[in-house]
Simulated assay, not measured.
Amino acid sequence: MTAPAFRPATAADVPALVDLVNSAYRGDSGRQGWTTESDILGGQRTDPDWVAEVLARPETVVLVAERDGELLACCELQRRGPAAYFGMFSVRPTLQGGGIGRAVLAEAERHAAEVWGCADMEMTVISIREDLIAWYERRGYHRTGVLSPFPYGDERFGIPLRPDLRFETLAKPLPRP
């Protein structure tokens, strides 16, 4: 199988990105992969307005991974001074566990370090997602102990199915180019 090609997303990608992100995290389609949040959050993960807003932000790029014209995965990168923020990471559920996620993360780290000159990569993960946090730790990320509240009451990010959700910041120093 050939490696995916990477490119920045455009406004024309919004519908496909919304479908990909929601399928990776919610409902029955999300259960096909291991990154599902279906047991802790209902509703949507994102919507077209939010994705379009992300694409329009300065200092932000949404990278997409494609193979033969098919959207396989995506991630959002925001330049925040000396660090880059990694988010909206989604891999088509039927392809999870096949190395595409590792390739996307590596490309995001390369972009942050080589294109933007960032020294670190940061992200937030729902703190009870121990399997996902462990996956990032195997790739050099560490828990910072910095916790932030989950946006209860804002259904744009899902409908919480439990009362103990919060985010934890993970970080990793990036190699200097």
Score class of each variant (00 low, 15 high):
V21N: 06
A3S: 13
T10Y: 02
G98W: 00
H142D: 10
P15N: 08
V62D: 01
P163K: 12
P177W: 04
R45K: 13
S148M: 11
L20Y: 05
D13I: 02
E66H: 03
H142G: 12
P48F: 08
R7Q: 07
F86N: 06
W116Q: 07
L165P: 04
R80K: 13
I126R: 02
F167H: 11
R7S: 11
E107T: 12
V61H: 04
Y136M: 09
V125H: 02
K172V: 00
L77G: 03
D13M: 04
D19Q: 10
L72R: 10
E76Q: 14
T94P: 00
G33C: 05
C74I: 03
N22Q: 09
P48M: 11
A134P: 01
Q44E: 10
G145H: 07
P82C: 04
T124V: 12
E155W: 01
L147R: 14
D120C: 05
G87D: 11
A119W: 00
I100W: 01
A119L: 12
E59Q: 15
R176A: 12
L72H: 08
V62N: 03
L165S: 02
F167D: 08
A108D: 02
L77K: 02
Q44S: 12
Y85E: 13
S38D: 14
A16P: 03
R166V: 00
R80M: 11
D120T: 14
G30T: 07
H142E: 13
D13R: 12
A65Y: 02
T36I: 09
G33N: 07
A56S: 15
D47I: 08
G69D: 12
S90N: 09
P173Y: 00
V18Q: 09
P15S: 09
A119H: 09
G98S: 14
Y25C: 07
I159C: 06
G99F: 03
D154E: 13
G87F: 04
E155T: 15
G145C: 10
D13G: 06
E122V: 15
T36A: 12
S23D: 14
R129I: 05
G69I: 06
L55E: 03
R57K: 14
T36L: 07
G42W: 09
L147S: 07
G140F: 03
P160L: 05
R7T: 06
G153E: 08
V91M: 09
E155C: 00
E122H: 12
A112L: 11
E70Q: 15
Y25E: 09
T60D: 02
R26T: 07
R31C: 08
T94Q: 11
I40M: 15
A56E: 10
V18I: 11
Y141E: 03
M88C: 07
V51A: 08
R162C: 06
R31V: 05
Y25I: 09
V115I: 12
L105Y: 02
